[in-house]
């Protein structure tokens, strides 16, 4: 189909267009971190001047900042994020390579649960409009939005971990879903609540439209009316919310990984920034930006699928 071809062409053009964007982000971040007071080797007790000079030299920090920038970008083009300044003997590529799968698993499960449950609850509330089920679902949604994950997670850990002994309070084992459940719930709850409210509102509006009246007049069962005729247009606001949802889960994972002791990359962002671990922070900025850029692209394609009137001209 030519529409599929148009989508692919659009995706590739926009992806190529994202490279300059990423470059600008890298440049800005590079100089901004260095403009922040302090440096990677400042600690409580000041190091002897010679030791400091040696360290600076070893990491190239004694050179003019433009030279550093040139080296960094040069290495980056070869896929090398440079050595971490604080995790001795580790390159940033290694650190991210170890942590990213954990964060990715946590984040994607959280996003998928937020989407699926949020949409289902939203539809349910719309069909129960102004009845008990609607009120119950929407009160729950308010709670979900209002309470941040750093409150939810300890509470859940207390309840399900310490009192009920159903789930581990914290920690991580490879391929263990049980360790992920509580962090996923804490991460998914806020975006889930937002999605449920968005879907409820848009579904109510779609259900009042003329084409839904036609679908009902055709004698289609309610299930078909909702799933085939009403769902896609009702999902449009969710598509717009997708990028903010991913951002919310990403920032949420910084906190949640620290509280639950998960070996993801979220903690590197916080520690890297506090330690002035320049290369580590840069690596994190690049990963997160790239993720958000790709998300934005997917959202555009999703729009085109949800509404055929959307034209994909780049």
């Amino acid at each position: 189909m030519d529409r599929l071809a148009a989508m692919r062409r659009y995706f590739l053009t926009r992806l190529a267009g994202a490279v300059p964007t990423l470059f600008i982000i890298v440049t800005l971040a590079f100089f901004l971190i260095r403009a922040a007071p302090g440096g990677p080797f400042d600690q409580e007790q000041t190091l002897p001047v010679e030791v400091m000079a040696n360290l600076q030299k070893a990491y190239g920090l004694d050179q003019p900042v433009w030279t550093q920038y040139g080296h960094y970008v040069g290495a980056l083009l070869h896929g090398d994020f440079g050595p971490s300044f604080r995790y001795k003997d580790f390159s940033v590529t290694e650190l991210i390579g170890q942590g990213l799968p954990v964060t990715f698993e946590l984040g994607s499960i959280a996003l998928a649960s937020a989407l699926i449950l949020g949409v289902l609850i939203g539809i349910f509330a719309a069909l129960r409009h102004n009845r008990a089920g609607d009120y119950a679902a929407m009160s729950l949604a308010v709670v979900g939005v209002a309470i941040p994950s750093f409150v939810v997670l300890p509470f859940l850990g207390l309840l399900f971990g310490i009192y009920l002994h159903w789930l581990p309070v914290a920690g991580w084992e490879p391929a263990s879903i049980r360790h992920l459940i509580l962090p996923v719930v804490a991460l998914a709850l806020p975006p889930l609540a937002v999605i449920a409210r968005l879907v409820r509102a848009s579904m109510l509006e779609v259900l009042r439209s003329h084409y839904i009246r036609t679908a009902i007049a055709k004698g289609l069962p309610l299930r078909t009316v909702i799933l085939r005729h009403a769902l896609r247009p009702a999902l449009l606001p969710v598509a717009s919310y997708l990028a903010p949802a991913v951002a919310s889960i990403m920032t949420g994972s910084l906190v949640v990984e620290s509280i639950a002791g998960l070996p993801g990359i979220g903690r590197y962002m916080v520690q890297g920034a506090l330690n002035r671990d320049y290369t580590l922070v840069m690596g994190m900025v690049i990963i997160y930006s790239a993720l958000l850029i790709v998300m934005g692209l997917l959202v555009d394609l999703l729009y085109a699928w949800l509404d055929p009137r959307v034209r994909l001209d780049s």
Partner: peptide, 24 residues
């Protein structure tokens, strides 16, 4: 209702611009 509605008993509405589902 759906046993007759849409098959034996049908309706054509006033506004054809908005009466068809846009994404199908």
């Amino acid at each position: 209702l759906n046993r007759v509605r849409g098959s034996k008993l049908t309706m054509v509405f006033q506004d054809p611009m908005t009466s068809l589902t846009p994404h199908l």
